[in-house]
């Protein structure tokens, strides 16, 4: 993998740090008029998800990370691995629970997810921004209450729990924003 000098740093560049692939979120050039130049970089570690700030001497080089995003459809889980397929090449990839992480509660069969591969292996799974899931359990709400008075918890078919308005009932399908975990609307079946 190529090395990158700090001059090439910008948001989105993937580099290696402490043996872990990282994504540069922000890069700021710091150069006192009479002093040494540094790059102040905000980085997300792609496996642990940790965000940290790191300072580099300007002109320093770091190893690039062979990281790429692919769009794959979720197929099924065998209990240990989660299987995804490229809808064009039909190539399949299996991600372990660690790579799937929090996305586990938003996986819907045939939904296209973004799988981040490091050296060809999945390290993170990002679900679509919106998914549609059936409510498997929620308390019956008070009839006639349509105002958002805080709502009530509802368990979805994947095990995810979201707050829904009181009028939404078990058996209904709802649309959820996976980035915030918030209810968006009911879906007409």
């Amino acid at each position: 993998m190529a090395n990158y000098s700090t001059n090439e740093f910008k948001g989105g560049l993937k580099i290696m740090l402490d043996g872990e692939p990282c994504n540069i979120l922000e890069n700021e050039y710091v150069k006192p008029g009479k002093g040494q130049a540094f790059n102040r970089v905000k980085i997300r570690k792609l496996i642990s998800g940790k965000v940290l700030e790191k300072t580099f001497r300007s002109g320093e080089s770091v190893e690039g990370a062979d990281v790429m995003d692919t769009e794959l459809a979720y197929l099924y889980t065998d209990g240990e691995f989660y299987h995804f397929m490229n809808n064009e090449t039909f190539e399949q990839i299996a991600a372990d629970e660690k790579a799937v992480g929090d996305a586990i509660k938003w996986l819907v069969e045939n939904d296209v997810c973004t799988i981040t591969l490091w050296n060809g292996s999945p390290i993170t799974v990002t679900p679509p921004n919106f998914v549609e899931l059936e409510i498997t359990e929620t308390d019956p709400g008070l009839k006639g209450d349509t105002a958002g008075t805080g709502g009530k918890p509802a368990t979805l078919s994947t095990g995810a729990v979201v707050r829904v308005p009181l009028f939404v009932q078990t058996g209904e399908v709802i649309k959820v924003d996976t980035r915030s975990g918030e209810y968006v609307s009911r879906v007409q079946k």
Binding site: T6, N7, E28, Y29, V30, K31, A37, N39, S58
Partner: peptide
């Protein structure tokens, strides 16, 4: 002859 940035 140095880098560019928000202030440079």
């Amino acid at each position: 002859h140095e880098g560019q940035g928000r202030y440079h």
